[in-house]
Amino acid sequence: MLRRLYDWTMSLAARKSAEAWLAVIAFIESSIFLIPADVLYLPMALARPERAWRYAIIATVASVLGGIAGWFLGYYAFEAIARPILEFYGKLDAFERLRTGVDYQTVLLLLVTSGLAHLPPIKVVTILSGVAHINLGLFIVSAIAARGGRFLLLAWLLRRYGEPIRDFIEKRLGHIAAAGAAVLIALYVGYRYVAH
């Protein structure tokens, strides 16, 4: 099922309505969808590099709005809607582990690492942010920084290096971003350990 979903998402890049689909995928990725918007963003930006920045802005705005929807799901409708979504994707156990062991600062850190490196998946963190009653304004600012940073970095890489960077982005950028996220988490844990 996951492969078919991935292939379907990739096929959207060739459509005339690709920008609208990019917005839809970026929106639902942040609250309920499994496939990251990058899957659609990359082929679109490579096909029309002069629009890479435009696509990055569309993806950022839609992703942040989707994150807000995830926050509302967590805040107002966790049991009725969010829990079944997390169960469907097999993310409920990960969510419950995060939920029991996090505080306000940890959720914000996870929002940044998730926005940049999908670690943990963004939908888990947006819903968790609502459940944990993270201030909505602070949540929005963090989401803009994290998601905007990711999409704008991709736009810059694609505009500067074009097609040759595609293989690097698809195969290695996720690992590099995950390593950077792990370093941020380690620094935070170290800081918390020393502070206490």
Score class of each variant (00 low, 15 high):
R4M: 14
Y6I: 15
Y6D: 09
M10P: 10
S11L: 05
A13I: 03
K16D: 15
E19D: 14
A20M: 09
A23Y: 00
I25E: 04
I28E: 03
E29R: 02
S31G: 01
I32F: 08
I35P: 00
P36N: 01
L42T: 04
P43Q: 00
R48W: 01
E50L: 14
A52Q: 06
A52H: 05
A56K: 00
A59W: 00
T60F: 05
T60W: 02
A62M: 01
A62E: 01
L73W: 08
A80W: 13
I81S: 10
L86Y: 15
L86K: 14
F88W: 10
E96S: 11
R97Q: 15
G101W: 05
Y104R: 14
L111N: 13
S114I: 08
G115P: 02
G115C: 02
L116H: 06
A117M: 02
P121A: 10
T126M: 03
S129M: 12
V131N: 12
N135Y: 08
G137H: 03
F139K: 04
I140L: 04
A145Y: 02
A146T: 11
A146E: 10
G149K: 04
L154C: 03
A155H: 04
L157G: 06
L157F: 04
L158M: 11
E163T: 01
P164E: 01
G174S: 12
G180V: 12
G180R: 07
V183T: 15
V183S: 13
V183W: 11
I185W: 03
I185Q: 06
Y193G: 12
